[in-house]
């Protein structure tokens, strides 16, 4: 009986698993395979096997390594700042008794905007001579800021725009987690003598751990894949200050038409993401114990 149930279960899930395999696994396997060939769109074909040649070439390429480094900085900056802001806003909203749905709606607005539109919008807003931000700064006597034209500034501008665009994702997820927390431990902690910060540190953070892990992971993976904003706002410039890895790989595939190398880079990125995911997962579990 039990075995028949199990077989029936497999039968029910088989179509879904097959579809998942076809949709998710196939491209990954294809990319993995392609990464070992000198495959270009100019001459597509699996005629010349190059082994780990593409990987070696990528690993020895200064621009690629620089992109990886910039991406790491970007991800850490974006995720860390978004997490802090997201947590603060979520905590504030969690205490709000009235108008929560209005706040939700306002917060969700940026998230609903297409990243391309976000990029165009901010390019306009941050236009050094014609944009509203520098005009406003000018009214209080601050010299125009070169938002996208100076390397360090451009990096932080892109970080800020991404934060503006995505921070509500953090807020919404964290808020959902916060509002699902039980209230009693907080009252117990207040009587135990915990200050607001101690309650946050010793009660909220540990209780939120699963939500935080998932939120950070998702945001991190999204951040690594950041592409649209870079494409619209800086094209990786000025210099190579904002040349994020996804945009780099995209160019390798669609400008250079060198799919073999692009796939090798994508596979390396995949390995790094998988590794980071595992590390974060384990770290967070240890903290909890």
């Amino acid at each position: 009986m039990e075995r028949r149930d199990r077989r029936f279960g497999w039968m029910l899930s088989a179509p879904g698993l097959l579809l998942l395999g076809a949709v998710v696994l196939f491209p990954i396997v294809w990319a993995g395979l392609t990464s070992f060939f000198d495959y270009t769109l100019l001459m597509p074909g699996y005629d010349s096997f190059v082994g780990i040649g593409n990987y070696r070439m990528a690993a020895g390429q200064g621009e690629f390594l620089h992109s990886a480094w910039i991406t790491l900085l970007f991800v850490v900056a974006v995720v860390a700042i978004q997490f802090v802001i997201g947590m603060v806003v979520a905590l504030a909203l969690n205490d709000a008794r009235r108008g929560k749905s209005v706040y939700y709606l306002i917060l969700l607005c940026p998230l609903l905007i297409n990243p391309v539109v976000v990029g165009l919008m901010w390019r306009m807003i941050l236009h050094p001579t014609l944009g509203i931000v520098n005009w406003l700064l000018g009214t209080v006597g601050i010299a125009p800021v070169n938002w996208l034209g100076a390397p360090d500034m451009a990096f932080w501008t892109v970080v800020l725009v991404d934060i503006w665009h995505q921070v509500s994702f953090m807020v919404v997820l964290l808020l959902a987690g916060l509002s699902a927390l039980p209230t009693e431990p907080y009252e117990a902690a207040r009587c135990d003598g915990a200050t607001a910060f101690q309650r946050f540190w010793h009660i909220t953070l540990p209780l939120m751990r699963p939500v935080i892990i998932v939120t950070l992971l998702i945001r991190m993976i999204f951040a690594i894949k950041t592409y649209d904003i870079i494409y619209i706002m800086t094209r990786g410039g000025p210099g190579v200050a904002t040349d994020l890895i996804s945009y780099f790989i995209y160019r390798r595939a669609f400008v250079s038409l060198d799919l073999g190398q692009a796939c090798a880079m994508a596979v390396m990125l995949l390995v790094v993401i998988a590794g980071m995911t595992a590390m974060l997962w384990r770290a967070m579990r240890q903290v909890g114990e």
Binding site: P182, P185, E187, A188, A189, H202, P206, G288
Partner: peptide, 10 residues
């Protein structure tokens, strides 16, 4: 408390 209100993670 009636429902004990223990810290579930400790």
């Amino acid at each position: 408390f009636q429902n004990y209100a223990l810290y579930p993670h400790m």
